[in-house]
Amino acid sequence: MRELRASLVMILAIGLLFGLIYPLVMTGISQLAFPWQANGSLLRQGGRVVGSALVAQRFRGPTYFHPRPSAVGYAANGSGASNLAPTNRLLIAHVRRRAERWQLRLGNKQAVPFGLVTSSASGLDPDISPAAARYQAPMVARSRHLPLHLIDRLIARHIQEPLLGILGRPVVNVLELNLALDRLSAAQKASGG
């Protein structure tokens, strides 16, 4: 009986300390020190929250850069992968269909960057490779009636290089790139270009 009581009291006390006080204290410090990150890294455009810098969102049509395909329909609260095995016939069919669709969009027979035809592990991958961004540039330039070199320059400015040139690999954040693209279009219109 004494054993049972000790166990029960111990787990309740540990529960109070580590299940309640610990997360609360961490929340307090994070909210003070890193409020933007601690609240989901939300991005605004024109005063309106349009998404999280860390979460891919769906972009359709030729006027925006597209993120990688998502196995979960870009559901931010339900991340997940396709979990298709490398020998699964469905995987090959999916990749082929996506590649063909890209070639149709671009109107050429160029080989498609692999990231654009494969779903990521989270289904929310916010990044594409610089090559995948440059691949989409002609489509975006044409539909927005902007010169290609401006789009290429925009991409170059949005490449996040590896930390210290070592850690990780260069990526482009799709949402940030698209928001900058909208600003670029607006500026061009304003200057009568």
């Binding site: 929340t27 994070s30 349009v50 998404g51 969102q57 972009f59 559901a75």
Partner: peptide, 20 residues
């Protein structure tokens, strides 16, 4: 994230609703 807030509903650039 480290907050006590509920999921944050967001309307994306092209009008999808996401729960961050």
């Amino acid at each position: 994230p480290q907050s006590l807030a509920p999921y944050h509903p967001v309307t994306t650039v092209q009008g999808q609703v996401q729960q961050i």
